[in-house]
Lab assay of single mutants.
Amino acid sequence: MKATFQVPSITCNHCVDKIEKFVGEIEGVSFIDVSVEKKSVVVEFDAPATQDLIKEALLDAGQEVV
């Protein structure tokens, strides 16, 4: 499964690193693409990962998800 999250609070590479760390810890996540320019995060994943778990990880990383 693939999901795109709009994350307007992404401003720098530190944000990218933190997002990759938090989302990458979720079992089932196979790909993460964070774009500072587009302020988006694209995640490819399989169970047990879910969109809700990914959104929670983004929030835990200090990001706003819309």
Rank of each mutant, 00 (worst) to 15 (best):
K2T: 10
K2N: 06
K2E: 05
K2A: 06
A3L: 12
A3D: 05
A3G: 06
A3T: 07
A3C: 12
A3W: 12
T4G: 05
T4D: 04
T4W: 14
F5K: 00
Q6K: 11
Q6E: 08
Q6H: 14
V7R: 00
V7P: 00
P8K: 11
P8I: 10
P8N: 09
S9K: 05
S9P: 04
S9E: 05
S9I: 05
I10Q: 03
I10H: 02
I10T: 04
T11S: 10
T11W: 15
T11D: 08
T11C: 14
C12S: 13
N13D: 10
N13M: 14
N13F: 12
N13G: 14
N13I: 15
H14D: 14
H14T: 15
H14S: 15
H14M: 15
H14N: 14
H14G: 11
C15K: 06
V16G: 04
D17G: 08
D17L: 13
K18G: 03
I19S: 01
I19D: 00
I19Y: 01
I19V: 06
I19Q: 00
I19M: 03
K21W: 08
F22S: 07
F22R: 09
F22D: 01
F22M: 08
F22V: 11
F22E: 03
V23R: 04
V23N: 03
V23G: 03
V23H: 02
V23T: 03
G24I: 06
E25G: 11
E25Q: 14
I26H: 00
I26V: 13
I26F: 02
E27A: 10
E27R: 10
E27S: 08
G28E: 00
G28K: 02
G28A: 03
V29N: 01
V29R: 00
V29A: 03
V29L: 02
V29C: 04
S30G: 06
S30T: 13
F31V: 07
I32K: 02
D33K: 12
V34L: 04
V34A: 06
V34T: 04
V34R: 02
V34W: 05
V34C: 11
V34S: 02
S35N: 11
V36N: 03
V36G: 03
V36T: 05
V36H: 04
E37V: 10
E37F: 10
E37R: 09
K38S: 10
K38H: 13
K38F: 14
K39C: 13
K39Q: 09
S40I: 14
S40A: 08
S40D: 04
V41F: 04
V41G: 02
V42L: 10
V42S: 09
V43K: 03
V43F: 03
V43C: 03
E44I: 14
E44A: 10
E44M: 14
F45T: 00
F45P: 00
F45V: 00
F45Q: 00
F45E: 00
D46E: 11
A47Q: 07
A47C: 09
A47T: 08
A47R: 09
A47F: 14
P48A: 02
P48H: 01
A49Y: 04
A49I: 01
A49P: 02
A49M: 00
T50G: 02
D52H: 11
D52E: 13
D52K: 13
L53C: 05
L53T: 07
L53G: 05
I54P: 00
I54T: 02
I54V: 05
K55I: 14
E56Q: 15
E56M: 14
E56N: 13
E56I: 12
E56R: 15
A57R: 06
A57V: 05
A57H: 02
A57I: 04
L58M: 06
L58S: 03
L59Q: 09
L59W: 09
A61Y: 05
A61P: 02
A61G: 03
G62S: 06
G62N: 05
G62T: 10
Q63T: 06
Q63D: 04
Q63K: 07
Q63E: 05
E64C: 15
E64R: 11
V65H: 05
V65I: 09
V66L: 10
